[in-house]
Each structure stands twice: as C-alpha cells, then as structure tokens.
Design a protein around this nucleic acid. Structure first.
Lengths: 228, 228
DNA sequence: CGAATATTTGAGGGCTATCAAACTGGGTGG
DNA sequence: CCACCCAGTTTGATAGCCCTCAAATATTCG
C-alpha cells in the first residue's frame, strides 16, 4: 500500500516547491528535509484516522488528499482538499497528541512525511523554520475561515462561481477558461456539496455564460459571473 | 468610542490569563506586554473592517467580539465569537497586509491590542513567543476545521446538543447544567444559525430532556442528549 | 415603570440532500 | 471493430431543513 521511495533528485525538486520550504535558505531547508521521508500511496488509501496518535505531518507532492471528519454513525464531512504544495496536520507540532481528522489519498499521491518530534526540536535551532510553519498555519486558518464564511452565506451556484473566478485564466476581453485539476466529485467535496448539487449548480451557471465539457470550463463574460 | 486605559494591575492580571501568555516566562511575557495597549470599547463598536491595513492583533480580556465577513450586498456571516482569553487576527503577523474579516465588539469589552510590527521583531529574540503564537494559531485552526465539519454534517439541534455537552458541568447521576455566558443571539451566530432556528432547536431538545430558562440550561440525561 | 432589546412562535418558501435511474466516456476483452 | 462494463456524471422526484418575514411575548436596563 504505502511504499517508501529513495529521495531522488526529482522528489527533492518537488519538495522544495512545497509551501513550507519557500523562504527557507539552504541550510534550513536541508535541516527540515532531514526530518522527512518521501512516500507514495494509492487512490482511496487512508493515511491516518481521526484519534490515532500523531507522529507525522505531511506535504502533498503529487496527487490529492482529502481531510474529513466522521460523525457518530456513517456520515462524514470533508474539511479540506489538499493539492500539490499543500501541507496538512502541521498544527499538531504545537497542538499535538492525536490526529483530529482523517486523511485519505484521492489519487495516486506522492507525499513527504515529516516527523513531528524532530521538527519540534529543530525550532529552537532554526527559528525561521518556525516562521515558515507559522506562515503556513496562518494561511490555512485564513482559508478555512473564508470557507466557513462562504458555506454560511453562499448558495451552491455562488460557491461554484467563486471557485471558477478565483482559478480561471483570462483569455480575451472578459472571457476566461479553466481546466479542473481533479474530477468533479472532488470539487463537490471541496465546496461542501453533494455531487448532484454541483452538477445542478453548473447547469444554473449556463445562463450566466458558463460552458462545461468534461473538466474544461469556459466563461463568456467574467463580469456577468461576478454578479451571481 | 475607544478609550485607552492606564495599565492597571487588574488589567495586567487579566492579560496574563490570556491564552497567548500561558507558558511564557516572566521576561518573555514582559516583552510581549510591552507591545500592547489595553483599550475598551462599547457594544456594537466596529474594531476594524475587512480590507483595512492591519496594524494590530487583539486579545479579549472582557466581553465578546464577533468576527464576520461581508458578502457583495448586505448579507454577512459570522466566523467566530471570541471570548475572554481568546486572541484574534494574530494570523496577520505572518500573513500580513490587510484584515481579512471585520471585528465587532458585542458587549462592553476590554481588549489588549498588540502592535504587529513590534511583535514580529520580537520573534527573533524570543523564539518561545513564536511558539506561543504557533500554539494559538494551531488551536484556532483545529477549532475552525471542527466548526466547518459540524456545519457540514450536523443539524441545528445536533449543533446545540454538541455545544451544551461540551460546556456543561455534571451535577448528579447523568444530569448536568450550564449557564450561557452571553445572550442567545450570540450563541446562534456562533453556531451559524438564525436566532429563530436556535430557539426551535432548543424546543426540539425539550423532548431529549433539555430545559431552558433564560440563560440557564438543565440536562436531565446526558446520555440521551449524546444520542441526538 | 417604560422603552429598547431579546426571544418565541407561526407561515411560507427556497435550497440542497437523498434516492433512484438514465446517461456518458473510455477502456476491456472477445 | 464492436459489445460490454464501470466509474463518474447528470437528471428527476421528493422531502427535510433552515432562512425569511411578521407579529406576539419576555426580558433587560436605565
């Protein structure tokens, strides 16, 4: 299921592109890298479950990981979809103990796994690593707060419009397009919707000039979309 | 509107009870305190608006502050209700620039206001202050993620039951009680509900042995409530 | 005591989850 | 090359949940 990989130069390159490493200098990056192992996992593999003792935090190098919580019986809710460059569970460096949510690979993924205890030790010696982690935590917190606010005030079509507008690239006068990096059911999870609701949201947005074909999305008029 | 206060010994005591200060030693606490000003504000005062340049983060000493976001027109959503001991906007130490949400005092409040630039300078000299801030960020992130998951999977009565169970004190065999520290409309905001929905949730919970009188809540049987 | 503020209750409607079924596209093996 | 299969997606029907508006009732505070 999970196979360990030799740290190849390709993986070193991927790793240094991870958000945690930006703004670290050579020796800091090397010290942090020394706490990590690169690993791979297949689609649907569970990386850890809510409640397990927490030993590692992770950075996604390739693929997608979903973080979720379970309710008493059966129901589960997604909290976040992690993309390449994202890290997760680094909050346990300071709020340690056990994982507070589950993590599941949603594709063939490559991950860097950091030993929490070792990284914690590093903080005294390399304060800028602490700063890098604070930056990551801060950005996650802001993103999660925005997500919460959007859940509480936006309808499904508005959430989808917002996603499109913040990920598309302009192509011509007010037109834009976008190719989803993952299947629609992952986008639905990310937005807190059932897949059916996402599909209906897209069809609502047709009248606002949004065309969907497979993973390709085209926007006729960015300004119309913004008014949704 | 906002009046500055002399740093009295009472406020010093309040301040050291703030989450940020726990686990700091005397000199670290003193250094952090030197970046702060104590201030008071009245109910409904706006402390800052989304989009304003961010110069300070805050710790609530007394009273309650709500963090919220505005939608295009009129609608607003609450993100968090901050209680005494909580800090907010400390994520801007690393993800600085502008405030990403508004903050409004919901009572007569006493706040400590920390100058972000000064605190950022302190980090190199006192790494454990950075650790304290990381811990605060981590706990906020976990709490916000839990809130998001609960919003996505729990109904109004379930959210209220969850709130009661996590704040009540046991009194007898399986019985418990709780006194709300703030009016019900604040609880409604905290749980992402309209005040009417909170009221209806309480009345639904009557059949599970929950009695509400003003701010006092009594629970007949904790286990019944847990099964909601 | 009285005005302002909270809370409750009722009626109605919009939104989205759920279940079930039809449909799509791409890959498989014959 | 084609029939088949499968996972992902779409569509339809239904129901539950919660928001909104409006009005009645409690509470709080000065």
């Amino acid at each position: 299921m999970n196979r360990m990989l030799m740290p190849s130069s390709r993986e070193r390159a991927l790793l240094s592109r991870a958000g945690i490493f930006s703004e670290l200098d050579g020796s800091e990056a090397e010290a942090l890298r020394a706490c990590s192992t690169v690993m791979a996992s297949g689609s649907h593999d569970i990386l850890f479950q809510e409640g397990e003792p927490a030993a590692y935090f992770y950075s996604v190098l390739e693929g997608y990981v979903r973080l979720f919580r379970l309710n008493g019986e059966g129901r589960e809710a997604d909290i976040r979809i992690c993309e390449p460059g994202d890290s997760f569970a680094e909050c346990l460096i300071q709020a340690g103990g056990t994982y507070r949510y589950g993590a599941q690979s949603m594709d063939n993924t490559v991950l860097a796994r950091f030993h929490i205890g070792k990284v914690r030790t590093l903080l005294a010696q390399h304060p800028r690593i602490g700063t890098a982690i604070m930056r990551s935590l801060s950005m996650h917190l802001l993103a999660t707060m925005e997500c919460l606010a959007n859940d509480r005030m936006q309808t499904a079509p508005q959430r989808v419009a917002h996603y499109i507008l913040s990920h598309c690239v302009e192509e011509g006068p007010a037109t834009a397009s976008l190719r989803l990096p993952f299947p629609k059911n992952l986008l639905a999870r990310k937005l807190g919707l059932a897949p059916e609701a996402l599909s209906r949201a897209f069809s609502t947005l047709k009248s606002a000039g949004v065309t969907v074909r497979g993973r390709s999305i085209a926007v006729n008029d960015v300004n119309t979309l913004r008014r949704i």
